[in-house]
Design a protein around this nucleic acid. Structure first.
Lengths: 343, 343
DNA sequence: GGAGCTGTCCAAAGCGCTTTGGGCGGGCGA
DNA sequence: TCGCCCGCCCAAAGCGCTTTGGACAGCTCC
């Protein structure tokens, strides 16, 4: 079923049918209703490709996912972010097109997407402290929104981010207030912008109390269960072990807990943990009211929604002035923290 | 830059340029090379929408993801599967388009995708024992491949699946051979086809040794860390607790381990765990050679690749005879299993 | 030397939609 | 009554590509 045959059946011209369906005013309400009903009955949906070609709008948003050996972008956080963004796309009538590329051809993938014209904009994941994608996208002239920020670029772009620095500063202060002095930071990969900001927050809190920063207490890497476990296990064997861990993800926190328990210690009594919690659908920190881990909590799915909304707004308005949205994490207290144990 | 201007610059007709680039024989090698070079230099890529409209091929594969309150499809397994499929799509020149829909309008989403013509086929996730999507897709006449199977349908369709029954039968036998008699099954959601098959495998192994099946030892639900923890914690308080757990995912296994340790027991000595391991990029079972958990291992990312390959083959050949691929899981021995402790 | 290939190229007709630029008749103001 | 506007509708021209149906030269072969 296409426009032409539908128009024929209705005894109207394709023009009128198209206009009726797309809400143009040059068609009487009576015909519009008649057309709408016929379209409904015939389960008619305009052919996407034709529509796209005619309007020049792809009605699709691109996500480029580099696959590398070093770094797994396809992680649980990513999945939830996608889910959030996808909800918004669907409501707005956009497709989400994902391209998996070997990370050495990421730049080419953007350029291709642009020149093939199959997306109206792209969403950028996991920005690094200095991210070459920014400059490239600016030269390509394709609308984009970052999930996160970059520190190393002066270019003005749109982003949605959590206030990572503030969240980790607050978390650190929370632990300091409980009397902890040896606080380990089990962070994400160092070159990631979010990890850098979290570290800055941690360091800022320590500095504000005139405390030295011990580099040995800082671990950076992929935020896995193994990371948390290995770090905790090792540090707890030191002569002056940390009394608290600040971890960057629930998985790392779970690993740290395991390390603590393996050392014959009790989490929340002997050793405290504060973690960041992205509120993943599949990895919950207990219940909302009774969390297991004390955590800085911020929904990454909501971040996905906001990124998508921002990008669509930018595309549809044609107004490319950069927009920002800074989300604040809430600090929820769970069972994983307590006052520093007295010797 | 489009075909017409490129042709003009070259002093050729659009026809010839198109044919040169698409490898048709009616053009001399000399011109073909000239055209290729000019296209390269101008960074010319044919407009996707126009190409699609002209050929009638969408060059895209659809994934429909229902979002519900009851059940989270956006899980780590899903993410890895997508990554695998996406690799193959990219190599074959296909886009991956994902549509997030509220689960009550899933059927409509497929019909729309079909009539809007923006995909050439779809990949079906997480089939249930009886899955209404099969009948619907058959009436729509759109190529599809299932990741998994359905038991309740006689319709002939293509699928890629792990031999879940055999895997869990082997795992159960492995535990039985170690002397375990009270083996708990911490399974996925019961209406899921894979969970049903895993349960059948577990039951078959018990029956083969004339052992009764204790329904109390079977738990079905979302495969989260909490699920494993809660189940283990409760069962270990019974007067006749299980001596082994068979879990359906690494997260559940991690939860079960926590439950075991909370009970003051040692995994691998007092209580054994065998789990299924999907080899997720972000959730590793130790290293390949030295796994933490004894596990039935099968890469879900590889399953994604094979699903994608099957679907593309089906689409491009136009031969819609169903194809199947049954992957076997390997049973790897880790540190989580040992002989049943003597009282 | 002319018929018949063959290799190389092109003009033009779509693909299914949107959009521009009218056409036509009825109601209104002068 | 005439002219004009306005509401409603349509024909036709694209969007950028593929593909059909030749055209034309150079060649072989009898």
């Amino acid at each position: 079923m296409n426009l032409k045959t539908l128009a024929l059946e209705l005894g109207l011209s394709p023009t009128t049918v198209s206009r009726a369906l797309n809400g143009y005013p040059e068609v009487s309400e009576a015909t519009r209703r008649r057309v709408r009903e016929a379209a409904e009955a015939a389960n008619y949906h305009p052919n996407t490709q034709a529509k796209r070609l005619a309007t020049g709008r792809a009605m699709a948003i691109g996500h480029i996912i580099p696959i590398s050996d070093r770094h797994e972008i396809v992680n649980p956080v990513f999945a939830d972010f996608i889910a959030g963004a996808g909800e918004v796309y669907a409501r707005a009538g956009y497709d989400m097109v994902m391209t998996i590329v070997p990370d050495d051809s990421e730049a080419r993938a953007y350029a291709e997407l642009r020149s093939k014209g199959n997306v109206d904009g792209v969403l950028i994941h996991a920005p690094k402290v200095e991210d070459h994608r920014i400059a490239m996208l600016d030269t390509l002239g394709m609308p984009y929104v970052l999930h996160g920020r970059v520190s190393g670029s002066d270019s003005a772009f749109s982003w949605v981010d959590v206030n990572n620095k503030r969240a980790f500063e607050r978390a650190t202060n929370f632990l300091l207030d409980l009397g902890h002095r040896r606080i380990a930071l089990i962070n994400g990969i160092g070159e990631m912008d979010f990890a850098r900001r979290r570290r800055r927050g941690y360091e800022a809190a320590l500095k504000a109390r005139d405390m030295a920063i011990d580099p040995a207490l800082i671990v950076e890497g992929e935020m896995t269960e193994a990371q948390g476990h290995d770090a905790a296990r090792e540090m707890l064997q030191w002569p002056d072990p940390p009394t608290a861990f600040l971890t960057a993800s629930l998985l790392s926190a779970m690993g740290a807990r395991r390390g603590i328990e393996e050392a014959g210690l009790v989490m929340g009594r002997d050793v405290s943990i504060v973690t960041h919690d992205d509120e993943l659908g599949y990895l919950k920190n207990g219940t909302a009211e009774e969390p297991i881990f004390t955590a800085t909590r911020s929904s990454v799915r909501e971040a996905g929604r906001r990124c998508a909304a921002l990008l669509i707004e930018q595309i549809e308005s044609g107004d490319c002035r950069p927009r920002h949205e800074l989300m604040e994490a809430v600090l929820v207290v769970g069972q994983s923290t307590g006052p520093v144990p007295t010797q």
